[in-house]
Design a protein around this nucleic acid. Structure first.
Length: 869
RNA sequence: GCGGGCGUGGUGGAACUGGUAGACACGCCAGAUUUAGGUUCUGGUGGCUUCGGCCGUGGGGGUUCAACUCCCUCCGCCCGCACCA
């Protein structure tokens, strides 16, 4: 019998058209069925899809198709994270309008995604640069403003000198802009901020409820929020040593227990006191200037030596009568954290120790490590930061560190200085408010107006949306909105006087902070429809790259809380379950000139690599993450056109666990394609040899037929479990096993009996159905080949027969002294005594015991026998 | 420096709450069929072996009848954060 090869590219188009015509993947709110919202991080429309997208959307699609088959009402939408700098760069480089460039890319990428056969509800498609979308975002902004969650602050910002814009802290990586890679500078500039710090504790607490998030991501967020509990301590400034108005210095500390070991106080170069001193003291001013000059970039800050300037201001020691501490301006104190001032305890803090050694300050140990001799214990080059017993600390002596912290806190909060308590308990966060101002054109305009009379006034709701002007020029560097001749000139909505529009646009991370909510009702007149978000949210399964572990995911969690507070949703956590997928890697290739070469241009011959066209020698470099710059990329279009989408999907799900990096290989793709062709042959052969669709189940099955049925039902169970845990590679392996079993059944039965005919058909059907979420086109084609009229995409998930999952006999290993010597096949429910008797009779076991006394026989029914002799 | 993760054949990886390590696949070897070839099918494939066995999950130690799995320790690689008071 000859079976036509499966022509994937042609058949895939056919089934995609059938699904679309029937609207199989359209989702509607339907209270009668449990909902399931599966979402993959939406793409930035950069031009073409890459293999990372293929992996991401394939995994999401498997979940969507699987859950749909299991009876859930599945929402699986797609959209475009469409604002951002590359569109403006294209405009600058090629003279294309950003909108044109973006929407062209979207059209290309939409076609590409459609060729993958994803079960998406395209009727909900949105792009964040659609006026309809950003109008709703402007409404959210105004609601957040009214709720006190928006602020305008002048503060030190991260300035990217290449992209000419401000960056959030989260967007600065190793002192460089996350996109441009330029060294980031510090500038003072007014900007709009979202008060994410208002939710700092809530965002931290909420992590505890996210039990279906990777621990790694939760930990990274917890560290980013950086909660620390401590004490604010007010130091009394000795009269006449400081400028007026600075009679108290407040420091923040998490180690009040070490106060008796304090030998100095240090303040940040931009601390108000430092500035006041500098106004009268040239040396101080010079020192501060030096700090700021040396430390404009975060990268430089990290390598700097500890430097200080003795201000000759003195403060009274709060707990040592008559003692005074010098006040330094120090380069390692940050104004942004705590109060911008510390007390230094060199013995128990490494930075303080380095500083003290440099300036000859005393080093007084106050914590004695366990087991150390108090008479000889001294601090060398390393501060001691561990636990221990308090010494040299008056009323704290003998206490543990924890006890001493509490005792000191109680002591100081009970004292007063100038009418107020000396100390107050304080919780400090590392998290800073989210600066969203960007001096760019291609983003959501911030709906605010600057009026010289009324101040800063929000755009009234009736005047929304504030749309981007289309006629912009990118000839001059800087913000095109600011250069536009008319756009920013408006009348003040309050007094009518000539006023100026805000020309900053929002960080594009704002756009992606709520799109999952908009997908619930993408055409609603308001940002959300309460019924729709009430039904669909939260997202049940969110899938994307780890690179968003902090940025996007933290912002989205904040935004959900802000939307809750402003009445747009009723939940706090947007993503119930999160899956962080690994990246795609590929070997790198270089030609003789050291230029990168695409894998598609490399051929292998007789163990040599050379260029497909020029024949020049090619050097194979290390396997690295796929990136355009290194050209170690494979175009999904090429793969899909040649092998079909199912092959790409199957390959990318096989072998490597989804959370790990996967290495793309041509051999692997060929292997995947071969298997799909084989599966197609097996199904067709089974359709020909097996029972017809809907044939009744025979009463009795012979041993072979029974074995095949068991194999099929076991695979069904295993694959179901694997999908539930997103272990796609394990599901693939199980499907291979079933294919092997079916292949055996077909080969050994030239003219099968009725029972085997039933088993062959059943196995082929199960094979097609459990593979369907991963290779939906081939499965659909197989389903039809097996004689079914309806669509597999609409068929429910099959159920395994429990009777076929338990074997009557089991094979268990028999060990002697923990070493496997033989195995034993015995009735599943055999009594322990029978198992023991049978095991001790085995020839290999008798020999291994070698006549020794049997001390003990461990029997775990259905698992193992271990004879101890 | 701090925090976290990982380490299993030539390769990707499997192994449920400790119970036959290496499922499944790639690669490789041999054979069959066919072809001009990619194809398809069958068998083999952790290492060593005196063919009885012995050794094997990064190294060393421990707990246990039994350890890839639990504990201690060391080594290597990867990721995140980084003057956070």
């Amino acid at each position: 019998m000859t079976i036509e090869r499966y022509d994937a590219p042609a058949r895939e188009k056919h089934w995609q058209a059938v699904w679309e015509a029937r609207g199989v993947f359209r989702a509607d709110e339907n209270e009668s069925r449990p909902k399931y919202y599966v979402l993959e991080m939406f793409p930035y429309p950069s031009g073409r899809i890459h293999m990372g997208h293929v992996r991401n959307y394939t995994m999401g699609d498997v979940v969507a198709r699987f859950m749909r088959a299991r009876g859930f009402n599945v929402l699986h939408p797609m959209g475009w994270d469409a604002f951002g700098l590359p569109a403006e760069n294209a405009a600058i480089e090629r003279g294309v309008h950003p909108a044109q460039w973006t929407y062209d890319n979207i059209a290309t990428m939409r076609d590409q995604l459609k060729s993958m056969g994803l079960s998406l509800d395209w009727s909900r498609e949105l792009a964040t640069c659609d006026v309809d979308y950003y109008e709703q975002q402007q409404k959210l902004f105004l609601d957040m403003l009214a709720a006190g969650l928006v602020d305008r602050k002048t503060r030190k910002v991260n300035w990217d000198p290449v992209d000419h814009t401000v960056l959030a802290n989260e967007q600065v990586i190793d002192g460089r802009g996350w996109r441009s890679g330029a060294l980031v500078e510090q500038r003072e500039q007014p900007e709009w901020v979202f008060k994410i710090t208002a939710f700092a504790d809530d965002l931290l607490e909420g992590l505890g409820t996210l039990d279906r998030w990777p621990d790694k991501v939760r930990l990274m967020q917890a560290n980013w929020i950086g909660k620390s509990e401590g004490l604010l301590i007010r130091f009394d400034v000795a009269a006449a040593t400081a400028p007026s108005g600075h009679d108290v210095i407040t420091v923040f500390t998490t180690r009040p227990d070490t106060l008796f070991g304090a030998s100095f106080v240090a303040i940040a170069p931009d601390h108000p006191l430092a500035k006041a001193i500098a106004a009268k003291n040239e040396d101080a001013a010079r020192f501060i200037a030096e700090c700021q000059r040396g430390g404009t970039t975060a990268a430089e800050l990290e390598t700097q030596e500890k430097k200080g300037f003795d201000t000759s201001v003195r403060v009274k020691h709060p707990v040592i009568e008559g003692a005074a501490l010098p006040v330094y301006i120090a380069n390692f104190i940050l104004m942004e954290y705590g109060t911008g001032a510390i007390f230094g305890c060199p013995a128990h803090d490494q930075r303080d120790l380095e500083f003290a050694r440099a300036y000859g300050l005393p080093v007084i140990p106050v914590v004695l490590p366990p087991g150390a001799d108090p008479a000889t214990f001294a601090i060398g080059d390393e501060a001691y930061t561990g636990d221990g017993t308090m010494i040299n600390s008056s009323f704290l002596n003998g206490l543990t560190v924890a006890e001493a912290k509490e005792a000191m806190a109680q002591h100081l909060t009970a004292q007063t200085l100038k009418g107020e308590p000396v100390a107050a308990r304080q919780t400090q966060y590392r998290l800073r408010d989210w600066g969203i101002s960007r001096q760019r054109y291609w983003g959501c305009p911030i709906p605010m107006i600057h009026c010289e009379v009324c101040g800063i006034v929000p755009v009234p709701a009736k005047d929304l949306p504030v749309t981007l002007p289309e006629d912009v020029s990118f000839d001059v560097p800087g913000n095109p909105l600011d250069h536009h001749p008319t756009w920013k000139h408006v009348a003040c909505p309050q007094c009518g006087a000539p006023a100026r529009r805000e020309t900053d646009t929002m960080d594009t991370f704002v756009d992606s902070s709520w799109y999952f909510a908009r997908f619930c009702s993408p055409r609603a007149e308001e940002p959300t429809d309460r019924g729709a978000v009430g039904y669909w949210l939260p997202v049940d399964q969110y899938i994307g790259g780890v690179e968003h572990a902090i940025l996007h995911l933290l912002y989205a969690r904040f935004f959900t809380r802000a939307m809750h507070k402003t009445g747009h949703v009723a939940i706090d956590e947007p993503f119930k379950s999160l899956f962080a997928q690994g990246m795609l890697t590929h070997a790198t290739y270089k030609d003789e000139a050291g230029k990168w070469v695409f894998p598609a241009d490399v051929v292998f011959e007789n163990g040599k690599t050379r260029h497909r066209e020029t024949g020049a020698a090619i050097t194979v470099g290390p396997i690295e993450s796929m990136s355009k710059s290194k050209k170690n990329v494979v175009d999904p279009d090429d793969i899909i056109a040649r092998y079909g989408a199912d092959t790409a999907r199957w390959f990318i799900l096989s072998d490597t666990p989804p959370e790990r990096d996967i290495e793309w290989s041509a051999a692997g793709v060929d292997g995947a394609h071969r298997f799909l062709q084989r599966a197609w042959r097996l199904v067709n052969e089974a359709a020909a040899k097996g029972a017809p669709a809907g044939a009744p189940r025979p009463e009795r099955f012979g041993a072979d037929a029974e074995a095949l049925r068991r194999s099929a039902h076991r695979s069904l169970t295993e694959v179901t479990a694997a999908f539930e845990k997103l272990r796609f590679n394990v599901a693939v392996a199980q499907i291979y096993e079933l294919a092997n079993a079916l292949s055996q059944g077909l080969q050994t039965n030239e003219n099968p009996e009725e029972d085997m005919r039933f088993a062959l058909r059943e196995a082929a059907e199960i094979l097609a159905r459990i593979a369907a979420p991963m290779v939906p086109h081939l499965a659909e084609e197989s389903w039809a080949a097996l004689g079914h009229q309806g669509l597999l995409a609409e068929a429910p998930w099959p159920e395994a027969d429990p009777a076929l999952l338990v074997d009557e006999t089991v094979t268990i290993a028999v060990q002697v002294n923990g070493k496997r010597r033989d195995e034993l096949t015995i009735a599943r429910d055999a009594a322990k005594e029978d198992i023991e008797a049978a095991a001790l009779k085995l020839e290999n076991v008798v020999r291994a015991i070698g006549g020794r006394q049997i001390k003990k026989v461990v029997i775990v029914p259905q698992r193992i026998v271990n004879v101890v002799a």
